[in-house]
Simulated assay, not measured.
Amino acid sequence: METNNTTTLSMNDTFNDRIKLPFSFETAKMLEEAKALQLDNFEYYDVIPLRSPAHLVDTSLPFPPPADDYADGSWTDWLDTLALKKSPYLTNVVNFFKENTTVTLVRLLRLAPHSTVKEHTDPTLGLEIEKSVIRLTIPILNNENVTFYLNNTPVIMATGECWYMRLTDPHKVINDGDEERINLTIDMIPNDWIRQIIKDSKHS
């Protein structure tokens, strides 16, 4: 992992901003189901919701009342979408985490060939933030010309792996390849279970 381009963080902080967790999932099954959900064409970026706020999944439900702090996923109920219900293996992946913590937003994120997600931060996606959610990333389709930069340093993620990244820090994605990139992202309200796994994985 390259670190010499990082100027704002210490060496220890650089490694703590991305942590590979001790979970792995079957790429072929995830990819088959992801492909079955896709539209044929999209420009730049495409999001397929697999778990969303309840009122967006079931339009008969009322909108949730205004919340003082939308950073905490407890501001609404969350439901599996029809797309997830059509996808048995992806359902199993999501259910693994639902059995251990409160899962909020789940999405398939597609980045088109020769496209870039510009550098940005997600202010509510970090363990260090009070009343936040955290995001786990599972790459499904990748190529050698896709680079995810976190704090100006590439995060080398293999398909099927599961990663926690401190997305409150600057990050961007560059896909210089000829094939789209697909990631599964799972947001959750952090509890003792996932905090301990992240802590143990940091030192493994």
Rank of each mutant, 00 (worst) to 15 (best):
G160E: 03
V173K: 06
M165N: 10
I156E: 14
I198H: 01
E43T: 13
W75S: 09
P170K: 10
L56V: 06
N151D: 02
A34H: 07
I198C: 00
E33A: 05
V173S: 08
T59C: 06
D200K: 13
H171N: 02
T185S: 11
E179A: 14
Q196E: 15
S87T: 06
N145C: 07
D200N: 12
L127F: 11
L79Q: 14
E180V: 11
Y70T: 04
V173F: 07
N151Y: 00
V47I: 06
K199R: 10
R166V: 08
H55W: 04
P53H: 02
N41S: 06
G73T: 00
L150G: 01
P53D: 01
H120K: 11
G126F: 06
I134T: 00
N95W: 00
A34S: 15
P53G: 01
L9Y: 10
N142Q: 04
Y89W: 07
T101V: 00
C162K: 00
D80T: 11
V57N: 05
E180P: 04
K86T: 04
N145V: 09
Y149K: 01
A112H: 07
P22S: 03
T185N: 08
Y164L: 03
F63E: 15
N4D: 13
V155A: 12
E32Q: 12
E33S: 09
N12T: 13
G73I: 05
K29N: 13
R195A: 06
T14E: 14
Q38G: 11
H114M: 14
Y45E: 10
T102P: 03
T124V: 07
W78C: 05
K85V: 09
E119N: 09
S60V: 04
K202R: 15
R181I: 07
R18F: 08
M30N: 01
E119R: 13
L84S: 06
N16C: 12
R107L: 07
E33N: 14
K35N: 15
A67I: 04
A158W: 03
L79M: 12
R195Y: 11
F15R: 15
D169V: 08
E180I: 06
F23S: 13
A112R: 10
N191D: 02
K35W: 10
I138H: 04
N92F: 13
A28L: 14
V93G: 04
N95V: 01
T91D: 10
